[in-house]
Amino acid sequence: MTEQSLPAVSFQGVTRRYGPVTAVSGVTLDIAKGEFFALLGSSGSGKTTLLMLLAGFEQPTEGRVLMAGTPITDVPPHRRSIGVVFQNYALFPHMTAAENIAYPLKMRGVGRSEREERVKAALSLVNLTDRGGSYPIQMSGGQQQRVALARSLVFGPDILLMDEPLGALDRRLRDQMQQELKRIQHELGITVIYVTHDQSEAMAMADRIGIMSGGELLQVANPETIYAAPSNHFVARFIGECSILRVVSLDGGTGYEIAGARQSLVSQENVPFDIVVRPESVSLFSVGDSQSTGIFAVPATIRDVTYLGSGWRVALELSDGQSLLANVMRGDLLAGSLEPGKSVNARWNPASVAVLPTEGSP
């Protein structure tokens, strides 16, 4: 394997324990050069610990971490060619933006003339050319975040680590910074490992996502696969909204029955299974509507309706007592007649269904 084809980062059977607590458990993962990789999980899932192991602020209890094929356990943090951006920015309040950005260059012994040129380029990269003389207190949260990003990139690291970097920003600024981060990552071709608990951030920015829970890496895939084909019930519930429904397997796993309605599956399933249905895949029709009749129509009752601006989120109860979520958009047939207690028929396309082994099945 050539150096160019080696992963930028490899975690090989990495475990990190703190006394009786296992923060990271047996993680094996390769991250390609130039990839934008998101580690996604709730608080305590182990994602930040994994980041700290790569940065060198923590050491693995078992396993090893490699950069470009080279073990880095004995390499101190400042020699790992890694830039780090934290949620709190960690800017020096007594330094201007330019001085903050120049700091890592000064610590590396870069001459004054070269420092000034690199700082100028870094400020341009993050669209802050005219704010180099400003102090952090004079800057907005988004501008401070850009300064922190420029400081982490100015010395030309091979990898950029970002730990909940947009968590302190409001929704509008977060959306803007997401676009900026993708632009900068694409422009530089740098490997980015991005830790977040926000699924929308990970889905919007990452080439691949790693879902973590309880210190374990549950699934690694691109956003489309994670959403459409989750590996287990936890991932299905964690990524977006969904309904996980108990069904009866039919014809050797080639189809299923739910609430008296039968539908074929795209591929055969050989174990007891549940189905995952996303709310945007569900269509609702009035009982007796010609479009609701046919092979697959699931009887349901509307229990609750929530206005979302672009449409409505409808909570349904199926005739077998299970719950189902549906999105009804403006212009849909039932958009003007969504009332709790109304009887409807629900339908979804067989191709939109994800299948998971029933929880607890062997």
Rank of each mutant, 00 (worst) to 15 (best):
M1P: 15
M1F: 14
T2I: 13
T2S: 15
L6D: 12
R17L: 13
V21I: 15
V27C: 04
L29I: 07
D30Q: 14
I31P: 03
A32V: 10
G41L: 12
S42D: 12
S42M: 14
K47S: 11
L51V: 05
L54R: 06
T61M: 10
V65P: 00
L66G: 09
A68M: 12
G69A: 01
D74N: 13
P76N: 09
G83P: 01
V84F: 11
F86D: 06
N100L: 07
I101F: 02
S113A: 15
E114K: 04
E116F: 05
R118K: 15
R118P: 00
L125G: 00
V126W: 06
T129I: 13
G132W: 05
G133W: 10
M139W: 09
S140W: 10
G141Y: 09
G142Y: 07
A148P: 06
G156P: 02
D158M: 12
I159Q: 09
L160T: 01
E164W: 01
P165W: 03
L173N: 08
R174A: 00
R174H: 02
D175K: 15
M177H: 11
Q179V: 15
I184P: 01
I184H: 05
L188E: 06
L188H: 04
G189R: 09
I190N: 07
G210N: 08
G214P: 07
L218T: 05
A229Y: 12
F234P: 02
A236M: 00
R237A: 11
F238Y: 11
I239Y: 00
I239R: 02
E241I: 08
G252L: 10
G253H: 06
G253T: 05
Y256W: 11
A259D: 11
Q263E: 08
V266G: 00
V271H: 12
S281Q: 10
G294C: 08
F296Y: 05
V298N: 04
P299D: 04
I302W: 10
V305I: 09
L308D: 03
S310E: 14
R313C: 08
R313K: 14
E317D: 08
L325F: 07
D332K: 08
L334I: 11
S343L: 14
A351Y: 04
S352K: 01
A354S: 06
V355K: 12
L356I: 07
S361N: 05
S361R: 03
